[in-house]
Design a protein around this nucleic acid. Structure first.
Length: 978
RNA sequence: GCGGGGGUGCCCGAGCCAGGUCAAAGGGGUCGGGCUUAGGCCCCGAUGGCGUAGGCCUGCGUGGGUUCAAAUCCCACCCCCCGCACCA
């Protein structure tokens, strides 16, 4: 095999061969084994609204590598997988198919790599999900995921639904579910809630609350002005209506309201009964006199074209001191209608002091920006943004606001003095709302702040208030405490993500957990409401542990129920009664319970980082609520995005890479290795073809090397080279374990596929003939590869005569420990090589002479190492050893010490001390002689000559003898040296 | 706005939490050499500046500070990315 393409084809054939064998021999079906330690790992199940893509592929690879790695260490590992049918996205796709939307169907066909006819046959949500579920599952198998498929389920399986009902009853009984009303974006045509992915242009409708303040005319008709800034009610000079808009006189919940006719239907979605009594032109309202409910002031209704009928009620209070629109409109009115003379009652009334502005901030900004009239929308928007922001953040209500109150109401004045005057705006706002409520003049409505937002069907979205809405109360403080406690006991990889989860626990409030459409489980006590997808996926890891047993024992879903799950998951109830109700024997029931207690708690949970602010945090919350402390999860691993050409994958960009396509193109092993090599787990991974191809090439080299070497190994042993190779292997194995324990996949992959090959080649170059140590090296090497590239590893394993599957092999404990003697020698040799190399940078030569210091100076090294271990700094070490060094004839003592310090640090003070402990001495002369061949071969030198610096018979070339320091030999580089 | 993460050499990216091992790992790119019929494979070396001996100078967003010593600690500032909910 000489080309990458041929090799990739070969890799594909290996994956076919071995994935079938995995399945036939049920290699990854895991059952409890009491004497063996367990490891339970899960990754977030996918939502099958399309085929599995490489983003899933990355998360699942990390989980799979961890699973296979733990098997290497001897754990009984369970890695299951399910499919999340709950939710709505699939509904939209099926809708397109049923409506015969050709454009949409063709776009799906391209994106999903599925032919149009097949897509057209998927005419209901379940068939659609089922199709992509099965397709994705086949890809997962080919990808080499070591999953126990007996435990697979979907979230609409009857057993799962029963399990979710159990969970929700639990939450209800714990007081963690609450009922209430909730505003949502709503499409009047579809009659259902809409969110970002249901809107044109994927706009998230922003819902804001407006305060309605009831101004009344002399007949008692209510003019509900809509505002985001109720605290400014004290500074109202007039009320605006748009003269060119139709207004409706209506009856709202028994009151008579005057509102724009466009507001009528909006209010109807917000739990108001609205009846239209009569329509009037806005112009006819101008001139009416209204009473400000707080100040008692009589204000006029004036015309203003800027007032939108679409926003709020179409009736607006005018606060010219603090609202740029109002100031500009009033200025227009004064200039056109009143010929420029500004009457006293329309003068701006200052309410808020804010640094950087005068008494009338709106005027300042309008003039500073050069706003020409109320139609100068762009500048007015900017002016409004500034004033709003500065006043809200830094503004303080003036002390004299009470002087605006024109009625003799002591209680109102007292309230304003105590709760509004002198208070920051944000505080005053809330208090004014309270006051308005007390005065019977408060109401609220919701508005789409970034309107207009359109549903995909073209209908404009409104705000609807949903009743009977159930919330999971993540705002519950004692629950938050439990969640924090659970988090504190968990390992988070990468550790940086912990803060994100903590912050999420802090700000999480009530979460609406059910909705009116989509697949899933109905709330048992609220028909018509389906538990939404992020709420029915928080503790399902427990379900994996027992579902296959429920099925194999033939327990019918109708016989399940609270009693059953209580016993299986919590050990609550009488086993005999529970077994009888379930229709199984007590011993079978006990075995189900034992299966759960064997696997739980979950050891590692894997997902992408996008799930931190939702799923992963809910996962912690719900475990903390439902399970006892000892069953709380132990670890979360989050991975970064997969980027394509530097851009995030998204359906709209059409750059979603399907896992199946990549596997076909590159083979599972090359793809897996490419992904592992591309980025460490927390980083975003920019997937490039180059790196996958170079992974394939590297696999080819390794494969060829191993095949060829396994034939050539000879019965030689005991040479320095062989000991070196064994030492190197031990180093690699222990570093590999450290790396994978910390989920450093990339480092571990670089080690196994790059460094280990490099070291093997160094050995071969140095040793010439491969000894039996090579055989050991290869066998372990293949094991280390198996988590990353399982198929080629299986093939090589059988080539090397391994028993069974390498997927089931374990690492020799002995080999997994470091050898401190070897460690010191290797590092020392590396240091010498680097030193010689740095000389070779300035002088050319083909041979080197080394002068090593003798044992009489080794106590200096020991002292330096000891002092470093104790945390001493350079200065104190110098004080301690300088005399000694001087006595040995070392010149420039401080510089020499720095050099020794550097060496000790590089080799590791603790390693050095252990070396002394075990061998008594560090004999540099002997070590360099032993490794001379390696040094020469690494540097490409013809020969290396070593002398003791203290040897009077050794020639002193170029005065290099005296350069010898402990751990830093004197070096002479030249040609033709004798 | 609130919250989280981050700014490192031509590029990507480690290191900073536990300051000296850091001119700064590992990739990629580029340059030189080798191998080869050839190379788009592979191997070796170089890749801030200076230097005929293991050294010196500059340097890790910007500006200050602490320290014998700072990419690493402290303060201020600038910039970038990601979440903010009923949506998987």
């Amino acid at each position: 095999m000489s080309t990458v393409e041929e090799f990739i084809a070969f890799l594909r054939s290996l994956s076919d061969k071995w994935s079938h064998r995995y399945e036939e021999d049920r290699v990854f079906e895991s059952d409890p084994a009491d004497s063996v330690p367990k490891y339970f790992v899960t990754a977030a199940y996918m939502y099958p609204s399309g085929p599995i893509h490489v983003g899933h592929g990355r998360t699942y690879l990390v989980a799979d590598v961890v699973a296979r790695f733990k098997r290497l260490l001897g754990y009984n590992v369970l890695f299951p997988m399910g499919f999340h049918y709950t939710g709505t996205p699939v509904l939209v796709r099926v809708e397109a198919i049923v409506e015969n939307n050709t454009k949409e169907i063709e776009s799906m066909s391209r994106a999903f790599n599925v032919d149009v006819d097949t897509l057209r046959s998927l005419r209901d949500p379940v068939s659609f999900a089922r199709f992509f579920h099965e397709l994705s599952k086949e890809v997962m198998k080919r990808y080499g995921l070591s999953i126990d498929w007996r435990r697979e389920f979907t979230t609409i399986d009857p057993e799962y639904r029963d399990f979710i009902r159990w969970q929700f009853y639990k939450l209800l009984k714990l007081g963690l579910l609450i009922k209430g009303t909730h505003p949502v974006g709503w499409c009047p045509r579809h009659n259902m809630p809409v969110s970002m992915h249901d809107t044109e242009g994927d706009v998230e409708p922003e819902i804001g609350e407006l305060t309605l303040i009831k101004f009344r005319d002399s007949e008692g008709i209510i003019y509900p002005v809509a505002t985001l800034r109720p605290e400014t009610v004290l500074g109202v000079t007039n009320v605006w209506v748009n003269p060119d808009v139709r207004y409706c006189l209506t009856e709202v919940d028994g009151e008579t309201w005057l509102i724009s006719c466009s507001a009528v239907h909006k209010l109807r979605y917000q739990l108001k009964k609205v009846e239209v009594l009569k329509e009037v032109e806005g112009a006819t309202l101008v001139g009416k006199t209204l009473q400000n409910p707080v100040t008692g002031d009589e204000v006029r209704v004036l015309p203003a074209p800027f007032v939108s009928q679409k926003f709020g009620t179409g009736v607006v209070m005018s606060v010219p001191a603090h609202a740029p629109y109002d100031f500009a409109a009033l200025r227009d009115y004064v200039n056109t209608v009143l010929q420029g003379s500004w009457p006293d009652e329309l003068r701006p009334r200052p309410l808020i002091r804010v640094q950087g502005y005068g008494d009338i901030p709106a005027k300042d900004v309008v003039e500073a920006l050069g706003v020409s009239s109320q139609k100068d929308v762009e500048k007015l928007e900017e002016a409004t943004r500034r004033v709003y922001r500065d006043e809200f953040e830094r503004g303080v209500m003036r002390d004299d606001v009470t002087t605006y109150v024109k009625i003799a109401r002591r209680d109102v004045i007292d309230f304003l003095r105590d709760n509004v005057a002198g208070k920051p705006v944000r505080e005053a706002r809330e208090n004014v709302k309270k006051l308005l409520t007390a005065l019977g003049s408060f109401d609220r409505m919701y508005e789409v702040l970034n309107a207009p937002v359109y549903c995909r069907c073209g209908t404009e979205i409104v705000v609807k208030i949903l009743e009977n809405q159930w919330f999971i109360d993540y705002g519950n403080e004692s629950w938050k405490r439990l969640a924090r406690e659970a988090l504190a006991g968990m390992r988070i990889v990468p550790e940086e993500s912990r803060k994100g989860i903590e912050a999420t626990i802090d700000w999480l409030k009530e979460r609406a957990c059910a909705r009116t459409r989509g697949l899933g489980t109905e709330l048992p006590w609220e028909p018509g409401w389906v538990i939404e997808s992020l709420s029915d996926s928080t503790i399902y890891m427990a379900f994996y542990t027992v579902i296959h047993r429920i099925r194999s024992l033939g327990i019918s879903p109708e016989r399940l129920g609270e009693y059953f799950w209580d016993y299986v998951f919590l050990g609550v109830g009488n086993p005999a009664e529970v077994a009888a109700k379930a229709g199984i024997s007590v011993s079978d029931l006990e075995s189900i319970r034992r299966e759960f207690t064997y696997w739980y708690p979950l050891d590692s949970r894997h997902s992408g980082k996008d799930l931190i602010p939702n799923h992963l945090t809910f996962f912690i919350f719900n475990h903390a609520a439902i399970f006892p402390k000892e069953l709380w999860p132990r670890q979360i691993v989050v991975n970064g995005w997969v980027l394509v050409e530097g851009a995030k994958m998204s359906k709209s960009k059409g750059n979603v890479k399907l896992l199946g396509n990549l596997i076909n193109a590159y083979s599972p092993d090359a793809l897996r290795l490419g992904i592992a090599l591309s980025a460490e787990v927390e980083q975003d991974l920019d997937l490039s073809e180059d790196i996958i191809l170079s992974a394939a090439r590297q696999l080819m080299r390794i494969y060829n090397t191993i095949r060829e070497l396994s034939e050539r190994v000879r019965a030689i042993d005991g040479r320095p080279q062989d000991r070196w190779l064994r030492g190197v292997l031990r180093q690699h194995v222990s570093s590999y374990i450290e790396e994978l324990e910390n989920v450093r996949l990339r480092s571990a992959a670089i080690r196994v596929y790059m460094k280990m090959l490099e070291d093997l080649e160094t050995y071969l170059k140095w040793a010439g003939e491969p000894g039996v140590a090579v055989k050991e090296y290869l066998t372990t090497w293949v094991k280390l590869m198996s988590p990353f590239t399982p198929f080629i590893a299986e093939e090589l394993w059988s080539t090397l005569g391994g028993q069974g599957y390498v997927a089931k092999a374990t690492i020799d404990k002995e080999i997994a420990t470091r050898d401190p003697i070897f460690e010191v020698e290797r590092r020392y040799v590396d240091l010498v090589v680097e030193d010689i190399r740095s000389v070779l940078e300035v002088v050319k030569g083909d041979s080197a002479v080394l002068y090593v210091s003798d044992r009489s100076s080794s106590h200096i090294v020991r002292t330096v190492a000891e002092m470093m271990m104790q945390g001493h700094e350079m200065n104190s070490i110098l004080r301690k050893v300088s005399k000694d060094m001087a006595r040995l004839g070392i010149k420039q003592v401080d510089r020499a010490l720095r050099s020794i310090h550097e060496a000790v640090n590089y080799i590791g003070p603790e390693n050095i001390l252990r070396y002394y402990e075990e061998k008594g001495e560090f004999d540099e002369f002997e070590v360099i002689n032993r490794y001379g061949g390696l040094i020469a071969s690494k540097l490409g030198l013809k020969n290396i000559t070593v002398y003791m610096a203290s040897d009077p018979n050794a020639p002193d070339i170029a005065g290099r003898k005296q350069r010898a320091l402990p751990l830093r030999p004197g070096i002479y580089v030249g040609s033709n040296t004798t």
